[in-house]
């Protein structure tokens, strides 16, 4: 039998697929096999604990380990880095906690912040660069670390309280579902909950629409004066928070 056959048998052993390992090792090796079988799970559980720190605090150690073991059974790791293993853990939690949507949202937030942490570096546009912009032609470019996710609950407030080591609020549904916006400023991952109007505006910018098109959209929604004011306010906040990588001005 070949090395490939041995390695497939070993993979099956690790992942609880029935396999006859006695073909490969003698009876004394059972203790060794058990060590590898255990180490595989322990390492993945620890990886998830590190990545989903606030989710762990929220649901507690026993519940988290049970969820992690479910995830490990359903989603064996495939990437070369453990750093990506948490992808989809929020969906596992959503299926395990259908009546507690804040759990999956907390996990999404933990995951998005961890991705932002190691995203590519960039130098966002500074406020003093705005004076030279021809706004009729301007196209905003977002920084690469931006991610958005659905916010139906107060998971953001729970996350912030846990981060500050304060007693977190009870989980509640938001009066109106919003969006969690995650990004990195300098080396610090950040987030805030945004309303639908800003989420749509960021989507427009992200898809390459011009600043003029954004203003027209806002004017259509809010009226001329309020639309222009809203565009200006959002732009000021995006610049202040380091969300804009560049302001391109294509040739007319």
């Amino acid at each position: 039998m070949t090395l490939a056959t041995l390695q497939r048998s070993f993979r099956n052993w690790l992942t609880d697929v029935p396999v006859a390992m006695e073909v490969w090792v003698d009876g004394d090796a059972r203790a060794g096999l058990d060590i590898y079988h255990n180490a595989y799970r322990v390492q993945l559980v620890e990886c998830l604990k590190d990545t989903f720190e606030k989710t762990l605090l929220w649901i507690g150690d026993d519940a988290f380990i049970n969820a992690a073991r479910t995830h490990i059974e359903q989603t064996p790791p495939s990437g070369w880095t453990l750093g990506v293993y948490g992808k989809g853990f929020d969906q596992t939690l959503a299926s395990l906690y259908p009546d507690d949507p804040e759990v999956a949202e907390l996990a999404w937030l933990d995951w998005a912040l961890s991705r932002a942490f190691e995203c590519a570096d960039c130098v966002p546009v500074a406020a003093d660069a705005l004076t030279a912009v021809d706004w009729d032609q301007a196209v905003l470019v977002l920084i690469p670390s931006i991610q958005t996710g659905l916010a139906r609950t107060n998971a953001g407030a729970i996350w912030s309280a846990l981060e500050a080591e304060l007693t977190p609020p009870d989980a509640t549904l938001l009066p109106t579902p919003g969006t969690m916006l995650v990004w990195r400023k300098d080396f610090t991952p950040c987030f805030r909950t945004i309303e639908a109007i800003e989420q749509v505006a960021l989507e427009m910018v992200g898809s390459g629409s011009s600043f003029t098109a954004l203003c027209m959209s806002l004017i259509e929604q809010l009226g001329s004066e309020a639309g222009i004011a809203q565009a200006g306010a959002m732009l000021a906040e995006w610049i202040d928070q380091g969300l804009i990588l560049a302001i391109n001005q294509p040739e007319k």
């Binding site: 993979r11 992942t15 590898y36 790791p77 495939s78």
Partner: peptide, 14 residues
């Protein structure tokens, strides 16, 4: 690693 599965453990070779 084998067939796209990555154990992330240092598994022994024969």
């Amino acid at each position: 690693r084998i067939d796209g599965f990555n154990s992330h453990d240092l598994l022994p070779l024969p």
